[in-house]
Design a protein around this nucleic acid. Structure first.
Lengths: 123, 123
DNA sequence: CAGAATCCTTTACGATACTG
DNA sequence: CAGTATCGTAAAGGATTCTG
């Protein structure tokens, strides 16, 4: 059994790919890299994410053990979300991706423009 | 402007995250790491992907310049898909993710089971 | 066998309004 | 301000069928 076959067959690998298989998970994890943040500030830093979707994303990350929630007593409500140790262990792979984006992102955009002018449709 | 703000604001980074923001892109790229493959074999190696979704995924990856298609003449049709140089440059970051999965995948599953027995619902 | 076409279900995401 | 509820749209994914 070759390495990639075992990777594809192993449910842990598929589980890990699923962690990135949506628009916001990686972005939110990355936005928490410097430390815990309140939801309001998170939305400012991320930009373009609705309150509802941020709540859903944080809940999903919490479900997967990557993020933890801390509520401070009193009013107005003050809540903070931060990465768990498991969540922090995910930062290097995500950072590898960010680095790739800076190096090759323009090549992807160039390929897209080339394809659009040829095929007239976007898959 | 801090590093993560610039990363989040840069459209190249969001574009890169979007490349992984679906179930199959990363899996198919990984399955092509050893060299070009025919769609039929790809489906065998990947497992659990329908012909239609594989076609769509390959078309999407081609649109983004990560995969190229080569058709050999004659009948029955023989087609191969392989990574472009740009697509191959994406393998190290994806591999970093696979390595993370082998190390921490069971922790994620443990967290999920813990959450399921507590919250009674899965986000 | 490749892959396009059709139909269907589920889910992600967004906008809005409301509660504590 | 945090979080939920509701509604609506769009896209992803799956099953099936058909053609070159």
């Amino acid at each position: 059994m070759t390495a990639d076959q075992s990777l594809l067959a192993d449910c842990r690998a598929r589980l890990a790919f699923d962690l990135l298989a949506n628009t916001w998970n990686a972005v939110v994890i990355w936005a928490l890299r410097d430390g815990p943040e309140r939801p309001g500030r998170l939305r400012e830093r991320i930009g373009g994410i609705s309150p509802k979707v941020l709540t859903e994303t944080l809940s999903r990350l919490r479900f997967n053990g990557l993020v933890e929630r801390r509520a401070h007593p009193g009013a107005p409500p003050r809540v903070e979300y931060g990465l768990t140790e498991l969540g922090r262990s995910l930062l290097p792979p995500i950072e590898a991706f960010g680095a790739w984006a800076f190096r090759h992102g323009d090549e992807v955009m160039a390929a897209q423009e080339r394809a659009e002018s040829t095929d007239h449709r976007r898959p």
